[in-house]
Each structure stands twice: as C-alpha cells, then as structure tokens.
Computed example of a mutant assay.
Amino acid sequence: MGIELELHSRRPARGKASRDSLIRGSYQHGDALARVLSGLHRRAPGKLAWVDPYGNTLFNEQEAQATLDEVAPLEQQCTDTRQKAALRDLTELLEACAATKGSYLWFVGD
C-alpha cells in the first residue's frame, strides 16, 4: 500500500491524459505516507483522514490550504525519518497547490 502525490495545474484527466496537467509528482514516499495517514481515524477533524489509501483523492487549492494545519501535528508524532520526509514532501505540495490558482493535489492510492 502506498500513496503517491501529483500536483496538477487543473483537474487531472483519467489515464495518460493526466500527464498534460502534471506540474510535479512525489513517488518516493508512498508507503511511509500511507502508514502515517492510515493512523488517522475517519471521524477525526480535517481532510487528511479522508484520503483513500486504495483509491484516489483530490484536493483543490482551497482544500489544500485548509489541510496545511493538519500536517504539523502528524509530523510531531512520527519517529520514523521516512515518515517525516513524506510529510515534508506533502507539506511542500500542499503549499504549492494552495498558491496555484485552479490546481489540484491528487493522492493516488494503490
């Protein structure tokens, strides 16, 4: 199980057409990110608890901005350096998405 991240300039199309809008991807921390996010309870406040590790989840720029505050508490709970690296990468992509009008952050589950 892993979660890859892709930042898109617009809502990504399905399949190979999604490459047309790809700005940046993060593919090296998928397993660590999935482990961190799987520890969140579905009824927890915020949006990260709703990321589907087996499917796809999209955040628009407003959702990305709102989610930024959820990452810092998660990083404090991590003892694994791979998990911390995954959360730093997530933070960078959330910030970029929040700063890019019309963009989407795509959580690509296994």
Rank of each mutant, 00 (worst) to 15 (best):
R10D: 13
V108L: 11
V36S: 01
W106S: 01
L37D: 06
S9T: 10
G25D: 12
D110A: 13
T67I: 06
Q62M: 08
K84L: 05
S21P: 07
G55T: 09
H41I: 02
R11K: 15
T79I: 03
A86H: 06
P12M: 02
S38P: 02
E75V: 09
L5V: 14
R11T: 14
E75H: 05
Q76T: 07
P45F: 02
R88L: 09
L58Q: 07
V51S: 00
E92Q: 09
P53G: 07
R43V: 04
K84D: 01
W50P: 00
W106E: 03
I23A: 00
L105D: 00
E61R: 11
L68G: 04
D80E: 06
R88P: 01
S103Q: 01
G25I: 03
Q62N: 08
C97T: 12
Q28R: 14
G30W: 00
A96R: 11
W50H: 10
S103L: 01
L74G: 04
L48Y: 04
C78F: 03
L5E: 10
Y104V: 05
G30C: 09
R11A: 15
H41C: 03
R35Q: 15
A13D: 15
M1F: 13
A32H: 11
R82P: 00
V36C: 04
W50I: 02
I23S: 00
L93H: 09
Q77S: 10
L33Q: 07
R14W: 12
R43H: 11
A72M: 08
L5M: 14
A49P: 00
C97A: 14
T67E: 00
F107A: 05
G109K: 14
V36H: 01
D110H: 14
P12W: 02
A13T: 14
A32D: 02
R11S: 15
A99T: 11
E61P: 02
A96Y: 01
L90M: 07
D69K: 13
L22G: 02
Q83T: 04
Y54S: 08
P73A: 05
S38H: 05
R14N: 15
L94A: 01
L5Y: 14
Q62I: 10
T100F: 00
A64V: 09
C78W: 05
H8V: 11
R11N: 12
E70V: 09
L5I: 15
L90W: 08
E6M: 15
I23M: 03
A96Q: 14
T67M: 01
R10V: 15
A13M: 14
D110Y: 13
A32F: 12
L74P: 04
P12E: 00
G2A: 15
D31I: 13
V108G: 00
R82W: 09
M1D: 07
S9E: 01
P45C: 02
D80W: 03
G55E: 06
Q28C: 12
V108A: 12
L58R: 12
N56T: 14
D110N: 13
Q76V: 07
A44P: 03
Y54D: 10
T79C: 04
T81S: 10
L37I: 09
E4V: 10
A49V: 12
F59C: 04
C78P: 11
E75R: 14
H8E: 00
P12T: 09
P45S: 10
